[in-house]
Amino acid sequence: MLLLALDTSTSAITVALHDGSGVRAERAVTDARRHTEHLAPLIEEVLAAGAVAPAELTDIAVGTGPGPFTGLRVGLVTARTLGFALDRPIHGVPSLDVLAHQGSGLVTGDLLVATDARRKEVYWAVYAVRSGRVERLSAPAVDRPGDLEDGVRALPTLGRGPLLYPDLFLAPLPVHDVSAGALAEVAVGRIRSGTPMPVDALYLRRPDAVPSVSTKSTVPDGWRGA
């Protein structure tokens, strides 16, 4: 197995190569605004570091979010198109699951993943860690951090939630962004156990229905297409 994993749902643009027994190479850049620029060069770097040609890949895994939409889509369309170009299967992993996995070595018991959803909200889910195994206890959701129950906010918390709202998340863990290496490990485990891995984007929010013609455009010439 040669699995390429990538995630763009958090501030890290992260790519890793897994050879079935472990992570062979991993690269990341933290730049929440430039996913489009960084992702493809990182893929090339990781393939070069692992001495693997694209055609040798057997699987593609991608974080399906939730995360800020524009960045999230860069990862999803990259993985889907790469899978199409190479005719290889694509496997989706909810990105919050990956962060929980990253925290599984740090705590035992329940933990909270809370990432930046912008607009003063967080994407979040609660997980249980029992003897190294991670189980999700709540569906991924998006809410204002102050609206989470006190008991939930008091849990050991991964993600950028505690960095953004230090007064509300009281037990921060030093893991802020998704690691593609961890994503690869989760993906390999789920592939082996035959767990379904849909690649649908987890948006959790409806689009804002504001037509571009009525908003102030940064585009010259009153851009609205065609």
């Binding site: 996913h35 990259t78 198109t81 170009a85």
Partner: peptide
């Protein structure tokens, strides 16, 4: 960005 990312994936994947 969707189109640009897709084009890059083709470029990398197909060389």
């Amino acid at each position: 960005m969707v189109g640009v990312a897709a084009a890059k994936a083709l470029s990398v994947g197909l060389g």
